[in-house]
């Protein structure tokens, strides 16, 4: 809890970092309608994929910051030797990352969805799918961030490590929105997405903690 509170306070003090992620999402997802043209049929058919990829990339660009600052100033060391389970501290840091980078994207997404002429029920599914999927992205991403800590050019390396692992989340997330567009139930996709989120909730903090111990050595 204390780590979560601290990270949120830090994010609040450095609001520009948060804004970068959000603007990235906003700009990338606005570029497509400009480039492709205003045909509603085309736009709404690419919307699920485009919005999901934009959300995924927006979450990823902030990943390399997740542990880097704590590593550089020594507070990560203090967390490693704190008499509390490291996985819980890590989970708190990931939660803060999601609240700061994931949640705003989820809230902004329906607004962007309107640009793509998405029908109302697809917008609702889009928000639900992002709500389930973006925590999974933060959780999986943390493993990559921890593994590449202190490595030169870690930004690109994180992308190479993490993007393949994002594929299932992307498929089920975008699939859910597409299904509801075609008048089918999105429940199967959403259930699988929830499964991804739960699985990463259990495994990612442990894997991240182990990776951090290796990186800090």
């Amino acid at each position: 809890m204390i780590v979560l509170k601290r990270d949120l306070l830090l994010a609040f003090r450095r609001r520009s970092d948060v804004a970068t992620t959000l603007f990235f999402f906003l700009i990338v997802s606005s570029l497509f309608p400009l480039g492709i043209g205003p045909e509603a049929a085309v736009l709404s058919s690419i919307a699920p994929g485009v919005l999901w990829v934009a959300a995924l990339l927006a979450g990823m660009i902030s990943l390399s910051r997740l542990f880097a600052a704590d590593f550089a100033d020594g507070s990560l060391e203090q967390m490693l030797i704190a008499p509390q389970p490291l996985a819980l501290l890590v989970l708190a840091k990931i939660s803060a990352h999601w609240i700061v980078c994931g949640l705003p994207v989820v809230l902004l997404a329906p607004l962007i969805g309107l640009q793509y002429a998405l029908p109302n029920d697809a917008l609702v599914v889009l928000v639900f799918s992002l709500l389930l999927g973006t925590p999974a992205l933060s959780l999986i991403g943390a493993i990559g961030a921890a593994l590449t800590l202190g490595v030169r050019g870690s930004g690109l390396l994180v992308a190479l490590l993490v993007l393949p692992l994002y594929i299932p989340v992307l498929i089920f997330g975008a699939g859910a929105v597409a299904a509801s567009q075609h008048g089918m139930s999105a429940q199967a996709h959403l259930s699988l997405l929830a499964a991804c989120a739960l699985l990463s909730l259990v495994l990612a903090p442990l894997a991240t903690a182990a990776a951090l111990r290796i990186s800090v050595e």
Binding site: R6, L9, L10, R13, R14, A69, A72, D73, G74, S75, E77, Q78
Partner: peptide, 11 residues
């Protein structure tokens, strides 16, 4: 207390 202070500049 290591040679890094473990302090956050923004706090």
């Amino acid at each position: 207390i290591g040679h890094l202070n473990g302090l956050k500049d923004d706090l």
